[in-house]
């Protein structure tokens, strides 16, 4: 273990010699140190878990946008201000939204339903298929997201997404949150508050907000765990996928749509 680490370091050192001549001059004795014992690295996520969500449109209250607000707060979306001189309506079409309210009316019955729309975290995500650089990817635990270190801003994923779930950052991001970095020229979308989940939390911001309002329209959890709340709820009653005809096996399911 230490051995390989040491050879690795030697190799790096060799490779970097050119770049770090100055550093080498003032840092003799690198070879002498014994490798610092690394902190336990934590575990990589696996496909034992598949995060998913059930949204009960019947419980989604008309005029309530607490999930949208919560998402904006959690991910710092509303820290992005309208640039000076930009027209209000154009900016409104350009500002990123990870979750949005949609109100639909049935053409026959006239029945009106409210529901939030966001990334549906498909098992077969078209955005991942089309991404030229693998920036758009699906994590082992089912979260579809953008690796913004690889995103070149081509927007092909936005063209491919059947749910219009993705946004492009049209302006320089001045105010940033540590937990949710984001910046100009990349595409982004809902990632189930991945920073929370990785830190051991089990809820998303939108879900918490919905519960706090007393609506409880959003249930979130592990679809692979038959005992999880979301699995139980899905088992109990029927639910639908939006655009089920595309056979994308979405991780977000709806009831009452």
């Amino acid at each position: 273990m230490n051995n390989t680490q040491d050879t690795n370091q030697k190799r790096r050192q060799f490779l970097l010699k050119g770049a770090a001549v100055t550093a080498a001059a003032v840092a003799p004795g690198v070879m002498l140190h014994t490798a610092v014992v690394a902190k336990p690295l934590g575990e990589a996520v696996t496909d034992a878990v598949r995060w998913g969500m059930l949204i009960d449109a019947a419980k989604c209250a008309d005029g309530c946008d607490s999930c949208v607000q919560a998402c904006n707060d959690e991910n710092g979306l509303d820290l992005l201000q309208k640039p000076q001189g930009q027209a209000e309506d154009l900016w409104d079409q350009q500002i990123p939204k990870w979750i949005r309210n949609v109100k639909v009316k049935d053409n026959l019955s006239g029945h009106v339903t409210n529901l939030p729309m966001m990334c549906q975290h498909c098992e077969e995500p078209p955005c991942v298929d089309v991404c030229p650089t693998t920036a758009s990817f699906r994590r082992a635990d089912g979260i579809v997201m953008v690796d913004r270190h690889l995103c070149i801003g081509c927007r092909y994923c936005m063209m491919a997404c059947p749910y219009k779930a993705r946004s492009f950052v049209h302006d320089v991001v001045e105010h940033k949150l540590t937990r949710a970095p984001r910046g100009k020229g990349c595409v982004e979308s809902c990632n189930f508050c991945v920073h929370r989940l990785d830190d051991g939390q089990t809820t998303t911001a939108c879900q918490d907000a919905c519960a706090k309002e007393g609506h409880d329209a959003i249930t979130f959890g592990d679809l692979n765990d038959p005992h999880s709340e979301v699995s139980q709820a899905l088992k109990e009653q029927s639910s639908t996928q939006i655009r089920a005809d595309l056979k994308l096996n979405t991780g977000v399911r709806y009831r009452g749509v």
């Binding site: 790096r12 770090a20 690295l41 990817f137 994590r139 270190h149 991945v194 990785d198």
Partner: peptide, 20 residues
């Protein structure tokens, strides 16, 4: 000398594998 490699490694682990 190697912090960029260390960070890059961490970046890949965190963003793509969920290791925090």
């Amino acid at each position: 000398r190697n912090h960029m490699e260390v960070i890059k490694h961490a970046r890949i682990d965190t963003v793509r594998k969920g290791v925090r």
